[in-house]
């Protein structure tokens, strides 16, 4: 029976000497979703990825990948794009892709055909026989991504897939990722680019100092951090509305007024009152949901403050 879960991690911990890199992490990744892993540098993302990939062994806890403990056969069904990656410089693209493909259990002919297909799709067909050293950085990034998905894996784990890519190439990679997801593939993506997560990811996990800080569907996580406030612009004195606690006028840089609501007041009720009022016109009405970026900073800063308290 095929498991709906691509990765199942239960209570894993990893300590280097006295440094606790990962502490009691539990999470799941499903087929057909993009799962984002975020956190500040040194939070334990790479360690977690390495444990999933069986490069490192967790001190405690259990990891199941594609339905069981990771075996050599399972590894063939996984694609991995490491951070700070490079490629063989002195070898032709096609040759290197075929080599890495066959190491994942493909036949040489199959690997060659698939590689040519992807190079075509990535506008790199003309470079198939060129050496990697002759490619620009963006081209190399695309090739690296093609290598990751060459063998039709069921799960791909990618570290900062968009770093160093221009907007056009970012779109190309995004399309490939979404396409991979549509075909039922599971994607674990570690990135610092919050807007990419907002735009693409289904669920996320944020870790900091090896601990899980946020975990769940992206929308749910953001809603969790939503303020009891609405961003509004238009004409009228918002303070006269029922249920409004206070109004923070739009300041430099921010378009719209921040309207804080009393506890228990629903934004829908406020909107319907505005509709009834003759003296008010609304152009924009938006829940004050913070961006992931804000949440990220809030979580990390909050932790730092917490540290300070402990320090005192």
């Amino acid at each position: 029976m095929p498991s709906a879960m691509a990765i199942q991690v239960e209570h894993i911990s990893k300590t280097y000497g006295t440094f606790r890199a990962v502490a009691d992490l539990t999470f799941e990744v499903y087929h057909g979703e993009i799962f984002a892993m975020l956190g500040p540098n040194g939070a334990g993302k790479s360690t977690t990825i390495r444990m999933i990939l069986d490069i490192l062994k967790p001190d405690t806890g259990k990891i199941a990948v594609l339905g069981g403990a990771l075996t050599q056969a399972t590894k063939d069904r996984i694609g991995y794009l490491p951070e700070e990656r490079g490629l063989y410089r002195g070898v032709s693209l096609i040759e290197m892709m075929v080599y890495l493909g066959t190491l994942k259990g493909m036949s040489a002919a199959d690997a060659r055909a698939k590689a040519m297909g992807y190079l075509d799709q990535l506008d790199l067909a003309a470079f198939a026989k060129k050496k990697v050293s002759e490619l620009s950085k963006g081209m190399q990034q695309k090739v690296q991504f093609a290598v990751t998905i060459l063998h039709d894996p069921e799960l791909i784990i990618i570290d900062e897939p968009f770093s160093g890519l221009d907007p056009v190439n970012t779109l190309i990679i995004q399309d490939l990722l979404l396409d991979f997801k549509r075909r039922g593939g599971a994607i674990v993506m570690s990135t610092h680019q919050m807007y990419q997560i907002e735009a693409m990811a289904d669920r996320l996990m944020m870790i900091s100092r090896g601990q899980q800080k946020l975990y769940g569907a992206v929308d749910a996580v953001r809603a969790q951090y939503a303020l009891p406030a609405v961003i509004m612009s238009g004409t009228g004195d918002w303070a006269t509305l029922a249920g409004v606690a206070r109004v923070e006028p739009g300041e430099n840089g921010r378009d719209g007024d921040m309207v804080y609501l009393n506890a228990g007041v629903q934004s829908d009720d406020v909107l319907s009152e505005i509709a009834r009022r003759e003296d008010m016109h609304i152009r924009r009405f938006e829940l004050a949901v913070p961006s992931l970026n804000d949440i990220f900073i809030q979580v990390v800063e909050g932790e730092r403050d917490g540290q300070a308290v402990v320090g005192r």
Binding site: I55, Q72, D76, G86, L103
Partner: peptide, 17 residues
């Protein structure tokens, strides 16, 4: 040394023991 510095090594060891 090359494979280590360009991280192809990480791809290799997730492909082959």
């Amino acid at each position: 040394v090359e494979e280590k510095s360009n991280r192809v090594m990480e791809i290799l060891i997730t492909s082959i023991p």
